[in-house]
């Protein structure tokens, strides 16, 4: 099942090659949780140096992929909240509002502020398909905790917690 394909993801996120690490979104509860896919191939630029004789996807890039999946959940949540607010305003005012200008949602992607208790259980190699699972937890002010995990098949390869901030 595809909720969002690569082209739609590129409309939402500001990341581009070689740093867009999310191929597809297969489950999405805006603002709450989501599951994405990253297919790892030998053609990834980082395998040239990591390592010349043993191809292993750098753990930090798996964290980045999880952060990008988090950004999708966050942005779609923000977008939905904005639309609902607009509809409410339109319904109460019944005014002929100018159609809101296309919001550049990519400019709202927040920042990563903390990486905690990250465990890397198994190396990720070319041919693996990463399942990126993220779930947004407690929020305090503009900060939120996010529980993240990456799977290859049924095996958990990375697990931990991120903290992200909204753009102030």
């Amino acid at each position: 099942m595809t909720v969002m394909n690569a082209d739609e993801i590129r409309k939402l996120l500001p990341h581009r090659w070689p740093f867009l690490l999310l191929d597809r979104v297969i489950e999405l509860k805006p603002g709450v949780s989501g599951v994405g896919i990253k297919n790892v191939t030998i053609s990834e630029p980082f395998f040239e140096g990591h390592f010349p004789t043993e191809s292993i996807m750098p753990g930090v890039l798996i964290v980045e992929a999880l952060a990008q999946m988090t950004a999708v959940v966050y942005c779609t949540g923000a977008l939905q909240a904005m639309r609902e607010a607009e509809q409410e305003v339109a319904a109460t005012a019944e005014a002929q509002l100018e159609p809101a200008e296309e919001i550049d949602i990519s400019s709202r992607v927040g920042y990563l502020v903390a990486i905690r208790d990250m465990k890397f259980m198994k190396p990720v190699v070319p041919g693996d398909q990463l399942l990126l699972k993220v779930k947004i937890g407690r929020s305090v002010g503009i900060l939120s905790k996010v529980n993240v995990a990456a799977y290859v098949g049924k095996v958990c390869v990375v697990e931990g917690t991120l903290s992200v901030s909204q753009r102030p």
Binding site: V113, A114, R116, R138, V140, G141, K145, S163
Partner: peptide
């Protein structure tokens, strides 16, 4: 503030 988030939890 980043520690504060952790403390809440």
């Amino acid at each position: 503030s980043i520690d504060a988030l952790e403390l809440f939890v």
